[in-house]
Simulated scan of single mutants.
Amino acid sequence: MSGHYESTRRRLTAKQAETVSRLTHCAVEVLREKGFAGLTVRLVAAQAGVASATAYTYFSSKEHLVAEVFWRRLSAMPEDTRTGEDRTTCVVTVLRSVALLVSDEPQLASAVTTALLGRDPDVEHLRMRIGIEIRKRLITALGTVSEDDQDLLEGLEMLYAGALLRAGMGYDSYLTIADRLESAARLMLA
Protein backbone atom coordinates (compact mmCIF):
# COMPACT_ATOMS: atom_id res chain seq x y z
CA MET A 1 0.00 0.00 0.00
CA SER A 2 1.24 3.47 -0.64
CA GLY A 3 0.33 6.75 0.95
CA HIS A 4 -1.11 7.12 4.42
CA TYR A 5 -2.26 4.09 6.36
CA GLU A 6 -5.52 4.31 8.21
CA SER A 7 -4.89 3.59 11.83
CA THR A 8 -7.45 1.83 13.96
CA ARG A 9 -7.83 5.03 15.94
CA ARG A 10 -7.41 7.78 13.32
CA ARG A 11 -6.04 8.90 9.98
CA LEU A 12 -2.26 9.27 9.91
CA THR A 13 0.02 11.89 8.45
CA ALA A 14 3.10 10.67 6.60
CA LYS A 15 5.24 11.16 9.72
CA GLN A 16 2.75 9.33 11.92
CA ALA A 17 2.51 6.50 9.39
CA GLU A 18 6.31 6.17 9.51
CA THR A 19 6.20 5.97 13.32
CA VAL A 20 3.49 3.31 13.24
CA SER A 21 5.44 1.40 10.60
CA ARG A 22 8.55 1.45 12.81
CA LEU A 23 6.53 0.28 15.79
CA THR A 24 4.97 -2.62 13.89
CA HIS A 25 8.34 -3.62 12.46
CA CYS A 26 9.97 -3.52 15.90
CA ALA A 27 7.07 -5.49 17.39
CA VAL A 28 7.98 -8.42 15.14
CA GLU A 29 11.65 -8.12 16.17
CA VAL A 30 10.72 -8.13 19.88
CA LEU A 31 8.39 -11.10 19.34
CA ARG A 32 11.24 -13.06 17.73
CA GLU A 33 13.46 -12.40 20.76
CA LYS A 34 11.03 -12.53 23.67
CA GLY A 35 7.81 -14.14 22.47
CA PHE A 36 4.35 -12.78 23.18
CA ALA A 37 4.72 -13.09 26.96
CA GLY A 38 7.79 -10.82 26.88
CA LEU A 39 6.32 -8.30 24.44
CA THR A 40 5.27 -4.92 25.83
CA VAL A 41 4.33 -1.71 24.07
CA ARG A 42 7.04 0.04 26.11
CA LEU A 43 9.71 -2.41 24.95
CA VAL A 44 8.64 -2.03 21.33
CA ALA A 45 8.63 1.76 21.69
CA ALA A 46 12.17 1.70 23.07
CA GLN A 47 13.36 -0.52 20.22
CA ALA A 48 11.71 1.83 17.70
CA GLY A 49 13.21 4.92 19.33
CA VAL A 50 9.77 6.26 20.19
CA ALA A 51 8.50 7.50 23.55
CA SER A 52 6.16 5.06 25.28
CA ALA A 53 3.47 7.73 25.49
CA THR A 54 3.69 8.18 21.73
CA ALA A 55 3.38 4.44 21.14
CA TYR A 56 0.31 4.31 23.37
CA THR A 57 -1.35 7.04 21.29
CA TYR A 58 -1.35 4.53 18.42
CA PHE A 59 -1.75 1.20 20.23
CA SER A 60 -3.91 0.57 23.28
CA SER A 61 -2.27 -2.75 24.10
CA LYS A 62 0.22 -5.31 22.88
CA GLU A 63 -2.71 -7.26 21.45
CA HIS A 64 -3.70 -4.22 19.42
CA LEU A 65 -0.13 -3.85 18.16
CA VAL A 66 0.10 -7.51 17.08
CA ALA A 67 -3.35 -7.39 15.44
CA GLU A 68 -2.17 -4.34 13.49
CA VAL A 69 0.90 -6.26 12.29
CA PHE A 70 -1.36 -9.02 10.96
CA TRP A 71 -3.79 -6.53 9.41
CA ARG A 72 -0.98 -4.76 7.59
CA ARG A 73 0.41 -8.01 6.23
CA LEU A 74 -3.00 -9.17 5.09
CA SER A 75 -3.90 -5.87 3.44
CA ALA A 76 -0.49 -5.75 1.72
CA MET A 77 -0.94 -9.28 0.36
CA PRO A 78 -1.71 -9.12 -3.36
CA GLU A 79 -5.22 -10.07 -4.31
CA ASP A 80 -5.36 -13.12 -6.51
CA THR A 81 -6.87 -12.08 -9.82
CA ARG A 82 -6.71 -15.38 -11.65
CA THR A 83 -9.10 -15.55 -14.51
CA GLY A 84 -10.14 -18.70 -16.27
CA GLU A 85 -9.44 -20.95 -13.28
CA ASP A 86 -12.21 -22.82 -11.57
CA ARG A 87 -13.57 -21.40 -8.36
CA THR A 88 -12.26 -24.27 -6.24
CA THR A 89 -8.69 -23.47 -7.29
CA CYS A 90 -9.27 -19.78 -6.60
CA VAL A 91 -10.77 -20.42 -3.15
CA VAL A 92 -7.94 -22.80 -2.23
CA THR A 93 -5.41 -20.16 -3.29
CA VAL A 94 -7.03 -17.58 -1.00
CA LEU A 95 -7.22 -19.94 1.97
CA ARG A 96 -3.63 -21.14 1.55
CA SER A 97 -2.26 -17.61 1.23
CA VAL A 98 -4.04 -16.47 4.42
CA ALA A 99 -2.94 -19.58 6.29
CA LEU A 100 0.68 -19.12 5.24
CA LEU A 101 0.78 -15.36 5.88
CA VAL A 102 2.70 -15.72 9.16
CA SER A 103 3.82 -19.34 8.80
CA ASP A 104 7.52 -18.52 8.62
CA GLU A 105 7.43 -16.67 11.97
CA PRO A 106 6.16 -19.00 14.73
CA GLN A 107 6.34 -16.38 17.51
CA LEU A 108 4.29 -13.93 15.46
CA ALA A 109 1.83 -16.63 14.40
CA SER A 110 1.17 -17.63 17.99
CA ALA A 111 0.92 -14.00 19.08
CA VAL A 112 -1.59 -13.22 16.32
CA THR A 113 -3.90 -15.98 17.52
CA THR A 114 -3.74 -14.74 21.10
CA ALA A 115 -4.09 -11.09 20.09
CA LEU A 116 -7.08 -11.58 17.81
CA LEU A 117 -8.97 -13.35 20.58
CA GLY A 118 -8.64 -10.26 22.79
CA ARG A 119 -11.51 -8.06 23.96
CA ASP A 120 -9.72 -4.73 23.42
CA PRO A 121 -12.11 -2.56 21.32
CA ASP A 122 -9.25 -1.69 18.95
CA VAL A 123 -8.54 -5.42 18.45
CA GLU A 124 -12.24 -6.07 17.89
CA HIS A 125 -12.22 -3.36 15.22
CA LEU A 126 -9.21 -4.91 13.48
CA ARG A 127 -10.67 -8.40 13.78
CA MET A 128 -13.75 -7.12 11.96
CA ARG A 129 -11.61 -5.51 9.24
CA ILE A 130 -9.59 -8.71 8.85
CA GLY A 131 -12.76 -10.78 8.55
CA ILE A 132 -14.21 -8.40 5.97
CA GLU A 133 -11.01 -8.50 3.92
CA ILE A 134 -10.87 -12.29 3.92
CA ARG A 135 -14.60 -12.48 3.09
CA LYS A 136 -14.05 -10.09 0.18
CA ARG A 137 -11.22 -12.29 -1.12
CA LEU A 138 -13.35 -15.42 -0.80
CA ILE A 139 -16.26 -13.77 -2.63
CA THR A 140 -13.89 -12.76 -5.43
CA ALA A 141 -12.57 -16.33 -5.58
CA LEU A 142 -16.05 -17.81 -5.66
CA GLY A 143 -17.16 -15.46 -8.39
CA THR A 144 -20.81 -14.57 -8.25
CA VAL A 145 -22.15 -15.55 -4.85
CA SER A 146 -25.78 -16.56 -5.08
CA GLU A 147 -28.16 -16.81 -2.17
CA ASP A 148 -27.49 -20.56 -2.19
CA ASP A 149 -23.76 -19.85 -1.78
CA GLN A 150 -24.19 -17.90 1.49
CA ASP A 151 -23.95 -21.07 3.58
CA LEU A 152 -20.88 -22.12 1.61
CA LEU A 153 -19.24 -18.73 2.16
CA GLU A 154 -19.95 -18.84 5.89
CA GLY A 155 -18.68 -22.42 6.03
CA LEU A 156 -15.43 -21.38 4.34
CA GLU A 157 -15.07 -18.52 6.83
CA MET A 158 -15.57 -20.91 9.74
CA LEU A 159 -13.13 -23.31 8.15
CA TYR A 160 -10.25 -20.82 7.92
CA ALA A 161 -11.00 -19.29 11.35
CA GLY A 162 -10.92 -22.69 13.03
CA ALA A 163 -7.86 -23.78 11.10
CA LEU A 164 -5.90 -20.65 11.99
CA LEU A 165 -6.91 -20.99 15.65
CA ARG A 166 -5.73 -24.60 15.59
CA ALA A 167 -2.39 -23.61 14.07
CA GLY A 168 -1.97 -20.67 16.44
CA MET A 169 -2.52 -22.97 19.41
CA GLY A 170 0.29 -25.18 18.14
CA TYR A 171 -1.74 -28.25 17.25
CA ASP A 172 -0.41 -28.27 13.71
CA SER A 173 2.11 -26.28 11.69
CA TYR A 174 0.78 -23.58 9.41
CA LEU A 175 1.96 -25.61 6.42
CA THR A 176 -0.02 -28.63 7.62
CA ILE A 177 -3.01 -26.38 8.29
CA ALA A 178 -2.77 -24.94 4.76
CA ASP A 179 -2.83 -28.49 3.36
CA ARG A 180 -5.80 -29.44 5.53
CA LEU A 181 -7.62 -26.24 4.60
CA GLU A 182 -7.15 -27.14 0.96
CA SER A 183 -8.52 -30.67 1.45
CA ALA A 184 -11.54 -29.44 3.43
CA ALA A 185 -12.29 -26.63 0.95
CA ARG A 186 -12.14 -29.08 -1.95
CA LEU A 187 -14.64 -31.31 -0.14
CA MET A 188 -16.96 -28.38 0.54
CA LEU A 189 -16.80 -27.16 -3.05
CA ALA A 190 -17.19 -30.58 -4.68
Rank of each mutant, 00 (worst) to 15 (best):
M1P: 11
M1T: 06
G3V: 09
G3A: 11
T8L: 08
R9I: 12
T13S: 15
T19W: 10
V20F: 12
V20Y: 11
V28N: 09
E33F: 03
K34A: 15
G35R: 14
G35I: 07
F36H: 11
G38T: 12
T40C: 11
T40I: 09
V44D: 02
A45K: 05
Q47R: 15
G49L: 07
V50I: 09
A51I: 00
A51E: 08
T54R: 03
A55L: 01
F59A: 01
S60I: 00
S60D: 05
S61T: 01
K62C: 02
L65R: 01
A67D: 00
V69S: 01
V69C: 03
W71Y: 06
R72E: 02
R73G: 10
L74A: 02
L74M: 01
P78F: 00
E79Y: 00
T81P: 00
R82I: 01
G84P: 04
T88H: 02
T88D: 03
T89Q: 12
C90A: 14
V94E: 04
L95F: 03
R96E: 15
S97L: 04
L101M: 12
S103E: 14
Q107A: 14
L108W: 05
A109W: 04
V112T: 12
T114N: 01
A115P: 10
L116H: 02
G118Q: 11
D120I: 07
D122C: 06
I132E: 13
I132F: 11
E133V: 05
I134V: 15
T140P: 02
A141W: 08
A141P: 06
L142M: 15
G143D: 02
V145I: 09
E147V: 10
D149E: 13
L153N: 07
G155Q: 10
L159C: 08
Y160M: 01
L164P: 09
M169Y: 09
G170F: 08
S173G: 07
S173N: 07
T176E: 12
I177G: 03
A178K: 04
A178P: 05
A178F: 05
R180G: 02
R180T: 07
A184C: 06
A185D: 05
A185I: 02
M188I: 01
